[in-house]
Design a protein around this nucleic acid. Sequence first.
DNA 1: CTTGATGTTCGACATACGTCTATGTTGACA
DNA 2: TGTCAACATAGACGTATGTCGAACATCAAG
Lengths: 122, 122
Amino acid sequence: MSNIKVLPLLEPESGPESVAPCCPPLTERPFTAEEAERTARMFKALGDPVRLRLFSLVASHEGGEACVCDISDVGVSQPTVSHHLKKLKEAGLLTSERRGTWVYYRVEPSVLASMGRLLASP
Amino acid sequence: MSNIKVLPLLEPESGPESVAPCCPPLTERPFTAEEAERTARMFKALGDPVRLRLFSLVASHEGGEACVCDISDVGVSQPTVSHHLKKLKEAGLLTSERRGTWVYYRVEPSVLASMGRLLASP
DNA sequence: CTTGATGTTCGACATACGTCTATGTTGACA
DNA sequence: TGTCAACATAGACGTATGTCGAACATCAAG
């Protein structure tokens, strides 16, 4: 269960330049039902204030990754933090790795670029 | 009730170049609780497949606006469409205007740019 | 004014979601 | 092996959300 396959925004290992994003910009043409289904999952994952703080915290952290022990001031209990991090993982926005006692989360690098493309203005 | 004040992404009428977006890029620093609260509202609004299709449909439509009569193929009933369009309005993503018999929706122009900035890569 | 078309609002309902406390699981270290 | 710390999972609970059909509001045209 270490590979997230929920949201294949990019073809995995397709090379750094042959980016194949999930969907065209929102303004290019009406989304199909399937495109909307996949893309909405990302937006939904970021649609909760706590998750958005967690994501921002990980994304802005030194080295692009953060340990759960670093984040205890988001206003919710530790199990709730864990629950939200899991949601972000399921949406394909974060990955996690255990190193010794601690678990480190980092942002899936392709995601930010892909989401940015969705909102890109022509 | 014609002015949406829910999500002041930009200072209203602050001029075309003095853009004052709500929040820094997600990767710049951890979001505060208030920033997360405001920004999550946008993502949440786009976090539903039907709403995402509606938004994409309006955003990509001829002239940047679309009549409700044009959108009947999203798989839900017409009252549900109306309900979702209202949600998008409340999130500050769309505006509506009645012209005669029909109601036209258009995307709030500053929103796409602001959201793009949130996800911009350095 | 009446009729028909276009949207919106209103209840009602099932489901999903966010949160908590309590309990597991995993690894480090005596 | 036993114990502690870090994190995850399970179950429960209240609230929010998406959906529908029915009723309402608004406008154009007879």
